[in-house]
């Protein structure tokens, strides 16, 4: 049994009266990729966004249940969300680099968290970019705008940005769905690489992607987890008919 990186217990999300996520309990192991799959509107993204309290921003959203990280329930009003979010990186569907230079995109977080030493920051920038396999492409133009990068490069920059503040968990919400196949392949390679150090939870619409990169897969439907198991098992020998129907493309 591996360490538990993150654990949700009876987590529900309501938008007003409507329940988007119902009573979901899932454990996400450290140093492993867990994929969340399911048809559109099944609540997988909503669930993901609850894990770093991002749903706090949505007016009318109510998250109930527990989320455990290292013995602390972070879904409580006492939790310091600012502190919490340093431990959890996030990557969005569309690349969203800050409207700043490549260097600043990475250095911004660490500097805010107290690292003022220029040398140290340079180091973090280089390490993070290397980690995200972006260093070679950008080392000569670190001070150019991040917006001039291609979509795939921007997405890798966003990953570099999130690992620069040294989180232990990375949440990814369809990180490759807005990218071309070559960029997608690079992102997948990168995820496989990052898995050695992080607990990664990834929402994806692409079942081949889930099969390629994840060790565990949770199948969501109508706000509930239908099935959660090793990825191999889900894709070769699903226990439920709905799971098998979905992964064979009968609906969704």
């Amino acid at each position: 049994m591996q360490d538990i990186g993150l654990s949700a217990h009876k987590l529900s999300v309501h938008y007003g009266e409507k329940a988007a996520v119902k009573n979901v309990s899932l454990d996400f192991a450290d140093r492993q990729v867990t994929a969340l799959i399911g048809p559109s509107g099944c609540g997988k993204s909503t669930f993901l966004r609850s894990l770093n309290r991002m749903n706090d921003l949505i007016p009318g959203a109510r998250v109930t249940g527990d989320i455990w990280i290292g013995g602390e329930n972070i879904n409580s009003p006492q939790t310091d969300v600012v502190l919490l979010r340093q431990k959890i990186g996030m990557v969005w569907q569309r690349p969203n680099p800050f409207h700043k230079s490549i260097y600043e995109n990475i250095a911004f977080g660490p500097r805010y968290h107290g690292i003022r030493d220029k040398k140290k920051l340079d180091e973090i920038v280089e390490q993070s970019l290397r980690r995200a396999a972006l260093w070679e492409e950008t080392k000569d133009r670190l001070h150019n705008s991040a917006l001039a990068l291609s979509g795939g490069q921007q997405q890798r920059l966003c990953i570099a940005r999130s690992i620069a503040v040294k989180p232990s968990i990375i949440l990814m919400d369809e990180p490759a769905s807005a990218l071309d196949p070559v960029s997608t392949a690079k992102i997948e390679e990168l995820i496989a690489e990052l898995k050695q150090d992080y607990c990664i939870v990834i929402v994806t619409h692409n079942m081949y992607q889930a099969a390629r990169i994840s060790q565990k897969t949770a199948f969501f439907m109508l706000g509930e987890v239908e099935e959660y198991d090793d990825t191999d098992k889900i894709f070769t020998n699903p226990q439920k008919i709905s799971t098998s129907d979905y992964i064979t493309g009968r609906f969704g």
């Binding site: 921003l57 969300v81 600012v82 919490l84 969203n96 968290h113």
Partner: peptide
Amino acid sequence: PREQKEAGLALGLSKWKTIRS
């Protein structure tokens, strides 16, 4: 864009820092 704000907050920036910077 909402993602810009979320990106700031997800990095562990405070609300004011996200707004300002």
